[in-house]
């Protein structure tokens, strides 16, 4: 007996610790947001992996495409001044870190 529909897919993000940025964990199926949250907790935080969870309907995520790779990310490569390694710091100051 086949069924004709399935619960929608949700992407799960969890925060591994206080002050840490959220990470993508995977996805779950759930009929609504509350159940998605519970399912995400039972699936991806069984071992206390996270202290907070986000769930987002998968079809609401807009992702860059591989064709965007050039225009999106390459230009930053020649902007060395955006990176701290671009600047020299007196030796004495370095040591105090």
């Amino acid at each position: 007996m086949k069924t004709n529909q399935e619960w929608p897919l949700w992407e799960v993000f969890y925060q591994p610790g206080n002050g840490k940025p959220f990470e993508h964990a995977g996805s779950v199926h759930a009929p609504d947001a509350e159940m998605a949250l519970q399912n995400a907790r039972d699936t991806y935080a069984r071992r206390n992996e996270g202290i907070a969870i986000w769930v987002v309907p998968s079809d609401q995520i807009t992702a860059s495409t591989p064709e965007d790779v050039g225009p999106f990310f390459d230009p930053a490569n020649d902007k060395a001044y955006r990176h701290p390694q671009f600047y020299s710091v007196p030796r004495a100051v370095k040591k105090r870190k």
Partner: peptide
């Protein structure tokens, strides 16, 4: 009844 619920009940 569904994989996610299997995990929940076991929890």
């Amino acid at each position: 009844p569904e994989l996610e619920e299997d995990l929940a009940l076991a929890n």
